[in-house]
């Protein structure tokens, strides 16, 4: 997974959405599906929003994730509504608990997967800049995304070295295993981090001029459609609040 975070090759974006739209989609999902805000009154909201990640994943040709999402979600949903009421006591409690957690978390998680696997770091940086987020925040974050695959690389080399030495989890000393992994990982990562900063600084990072960004981002028709989809539930929520306060 870590190899896929913010690493998408150019040209594999599916429906082209602006990173800011994706962020809004993610927030909407989190508020209404994960947070469950207003779901009691707007019963149709959750299911309709849950379709969104499915459509987006399919458009990005992530078929395995899409199918997995559909099956797991439908299965837990039916368990929740059809099997759940027929059980009682502890099994009922466990069943409803698990199914409830999965139906609430999964759509947002899938949306998250869609977002990180279709956005490149440059798009992310460009979007942050357009939103006037301070460079002090944007640069460390983009370095972090740059660092994930590097750490994954280091980790697999260390793992290989451990296997050749015959050190594995089969032994009983799990604490030692952690130490054996962390010591080389820290040594290598800190060295790479230092070289990375030196290279970035010699390319003029941190100057007094406002950076340009060649990454083409911008709102298109599809973005406006998605934004509309996201705004509708919020408006409905606000309207409901007023009604409640009237009574």
């Amino acid at each position: 997974m870590s190899q896929g975070v913010m690493q998408s090759d150019v040209g594999n974006h599916g429906l082209v959405l602006d990173p800011r739209t994706k962020l809004l989609l993610l927030i909407t999902m989190a508020v209404f599906v994960l947070g469950g805000t207003g779901t009691a009154a707007l019963w149709f909201l959750t299911p309709s929003l849950c379709i969104l990640p499915l459509v987006l994943l399919l458009s990005a040709k992530k078929f395995i994730s899409a199918v997995l999402y559909l099956t797991v979600y439908l299965a837990t949903y039916s368990v929740f509504h059809f099997v759940g009421p027929k059980t009682t006591g502890v099994p009922n409690f466990l069943l409803l608990g698990t199914a409830g957690i999965i139906t609430r978390f999964m759509p947002s998680v899938m949306m998250g997967i869609y977002v990180v696997s279709t956005t490149t770091v440059s798009e992310f940086t460009a979007a942050m800049q357009r939103m006037r987020v301070s460079e002090r925040l944007v640069i460390p974050m983009s370095v972090m995304f740059r660092f994930f695959p590097t750490v994954a690389d280091e980790f697999s080399s260390i793992n290989a070295a451990m296997r050749m030495r015959g050190v594995s989890f089969a032994g009983k000393n799990a604490g030692k295993m952690l130490e054996y992994r962390l010591v080389p990982l820290l040594t290598c990562s800190s060295k790479i981090g230092e070289e990375l900063s030196a290279a970035a600084l010699t390319r003029g990072l941190g100057g007094d001029i406002r950076r340009t960004n060649v990454c083409e981002i911008g709102f298109r028709v599809l973005d406006y459609a998605m934004i509309l989809v996201c705004i509708v539930p919020f408006i409905m929520l606000i309207l409901r609040w007023f009604e409640v306060s009237v009574f």
């Binding site: 913010m6 690493q7 090759d9 150019v10 490149t120 770091v121 440059s122 983009s142 370095v143 995304f145 740059r146 695959p149 590097t150 060295k191 790479i192 070289e195 990375l196 290279a199 970035a200 390319r203 990072l205 060649v214 990454c215």
Partner: peptide, 13 residues
């Protein structure tokens, strides 16, 4: 070290 002198993750950027 070619591993550690890149700031971005794709070549064009």
């Amino acid at each position: 070290n070619p591993r550690s002198q890149f700031f971005c993750v794709d070549t064009t950027s």
